[in-house]
Every structure is written in C-alpha cells, then in structure tokens.
C-alpha cells in the first residue's frame, strides 16, 4: 500500500480530488429530482387552491359526496380523509415527488404536486 501511495505526486492528488469533486457535483446536479414547491387542488376539474409546501396546513374541499380533507406538511401532501367508497386516494399516502397526483374520482377532487418546472406530464402508480 505504501509503495502505491508513493507513486502519487502532489499534482496527482490535486487532480484526483478535482475528479472526485466533479463526479459528486455532477451526481448532485443531474440526479437530484425536482423538489415540489406547491400542491394544486382541483374540485370538479377547477383549481380551487394552490398551497405552498413549505409549511403545514389543512384544507377541506367540497365535492358531490361530501368533504375531502387535504393535509400538507413541509415537502409533502396527502388526502387525509375522503368520502369515496374505495379510498384509493387516501391509501396512496403522502405524495413527495413533483408531478405526483392523488385523484379521488368519486368526489371529483384531486391534488397534484408541482415543482418549479414540470418534470413529467403525469405520474401513475
């Protein structure tokens, strides 16, 4: 091991450090997903609210079947309760990725996370 390390010259360390730094920076810049900043809530196809994702909040949206409760925490949002029969949108849990959506079809309420720019047209699970 020592004999191998002795083969390094000062500039070699410098370039190796630069190469590692470049790799890590490239990984961060290119692989970090777009963080969602807002959650868009729709009822009957119309946007009824657009909440920021940087602070917690709750919202009740009225649909044909009753109230859908939407809960927001920093960086994520979910449908807390819904009067729909199958509860798909509730069981989806917390949405964290930009473009992710939960749709409570029977109550005609949906929420979708939006980032600065839209990475995907839509996302399905």
């Amino acid at each position: 091991m020592r004999t191998w390390l002795a083969l390094f010259r000062p500039g070699d360390w410098l370039l190796l450090a630069a190469a590692v730094a470049l790799t890590l920076l490239a990984g961060r810049a290119l692989w970090q997903g777009d963080h969602p900043t807002r959650v868009v809530v729709r009822a009957g196809g119309e946007i009824v609210a657009s909440l920021p994702l940087d602070r917690p909040g709750r919202l009740a949206v009225k649909g044909p079947l009753g109230l859908t409760q939407i809960e927001v925490e920093p960086g994520r949002a979910r449908v807390a309760t819904d009067p729909g029969p199958r509860q798909y949108c509730v069981r989806q849990g917390w949405l964290t990725r930009s473009g992710a959506a939960a749709i409570c079809a029977p109550n005609e309420v949906s929420l979708q996370l939006a980032g600065r720019r839209d990475t995907y047209d839509s996302m399905a699970y």
Partner: peptide, 15 residues
Amino acid sequence: HLPRRLFGPVSLSLI
C-alpha cells in the same frame, strides 16, 4: 508538457 515533478502518470491517466 506539464511539469513531471508535480504531475505524474496518475495525472496524465486521469486527464
């Protein structure tokens, strides 16, 4: 043409 004393084969190989 880099100074050999500072930049050895490892530098050239990385470049």
